[in-house]
Amino acid sequence: MRRSFRQRSDLLKVHYLTIGEVAKLSNISVQTLRFYDRIDLFKPIKIDPNNQYRYYQNTQLYYLDIIKSLKYLGLSLEEVKSVLTLSPEELVNYLADQENRIEEEFKRLIETKEVLKRKKEQIQSFVLESSRMHICVKKMPAQKIVKIKTSNISINDIPNMEYGVISKVLEDMGSVFDTLYGGAYSLDRYESLDDIHYDYLFTHTVTDKEIDINFEDVEISTIPEGEYLSITFALEDNAYETCYQKLMDYIDQHQTKIEPIVYDVWMPINFAASNEDEFLVELKIRLQAT
């Protein structure tokens, strides 16, 4: 049966609530409601002049729900006060902006989680590696990198300027510099380490943001997925030369079909600035897909 206009009006009949009742219904403490009153955020509809009791209309509970929702978004009380003055159209635009902000924050958290995951895997692969100075085959996923082309940087150089440029690019992308970094050079039989010159230096990134790179010879690239010959060692004495030779001998002995690019990846294992530098290094060469 259809309700009459009077019956519908009765459903919306206004009645008053004490501050204790509002606190119970809204799950907000009495102290908080009094504070909201003092800062003109949420005021009672009337105050009894005889006993100073605060009374609210039941319809006001709707505004408390809005306040709680805005606080959940991380807004300060001053920001909440400002939002409550917006027109419906302005509020829609404001909430759309907040939705975009949350989406960006969500992406950042996903990237942060990926960085933590990769860092854990790096430590497990490097620091906890049980087969140091022994060749193994590793299956590796594609890795997104920021790389800078070089022509005169050798293994024994310290390319601070080049990594500074990469760091600036990562900052512009909203990412951070990875403590694991490296370079790529052609596989060959070198007389000494001084003869090895990198084609490019790189570090990893996990962000998907697209930016205009304003540095010459810098680009976003990918180390392809696949199986890699890998050898890990602490950088000391002649370990680099020894392990590089082991890779060359393995390839010759097994007639392994490889892509002739060596990726060397460096990871510091002594993070205290006051201590001497210590590094673990991984040399890896991608096997040709069969």
Rank of each mutant, 00 (worst) to 15 (best):
T205N: 03
A272K: 15
S221L: 00
S154N: 12
P268W: 09
K284Y: 12
S9D: 12
V22L: 07
Q98R: 13
Y240H: 07
E171R: 12
Q124G: 02
D252P: 00
T256Q: 14
R2S: 11
G182K: 02
K113A: 10
K113R: 14
Q143S: 06
F233H: 07
E191H: 12
I135Y: 06
T18R: 09
R6L: 11
M248F: 07
T232D: 05
E78Q: 11
F42G: 02
G174Q: 04
I269A: 03
D178N: 13
D277S: 02
T207V: 09
S26D: 07
E241I: 15
I196T: 02
M140T: 00
E89M: 12
A234P: 01
R118Q: 14
D188E: 14
Q52E: 12
E276Y: 14
N50E: 15
L128H: 13
C136G: 14
A289Q: 10
I158C: 02
A184I: 01
L180T: 15
K246M: 13
V265C: 09
F42V: 06
Y228L: 05
V127P: 02
M173Y: 11
Y94G: 04
A234W: 06
G183P: 01
V83D: 09
Y181P: 01
L64V: 04
K46D: 07
S167A: 13
E216M: 07
A96E: 15
K43D: 02
I213Q: 11
A184K: 10
E89I: 11
V83L: 10
H134D: 10
L25K: 15
I135Q: 04
S9P: 00
S221W: 03
N100I: 11
E236P: 00
C243F: 01
D172N: 15
Y163G: 03
V30L: 11
I251L: 06
F215L: 02
Y62A: 05
E103C: 00
I158T: 09
D40I: 02
K138S: 08
T290N: 15
S4A: 07
I196Y: 04
Y190H: 08
T256K: 08
V165C: 04
V92W: 08
I258F: 12
I269P: 00
S186Q: 11
V115M: 12
L86S: 10
K144I: 03
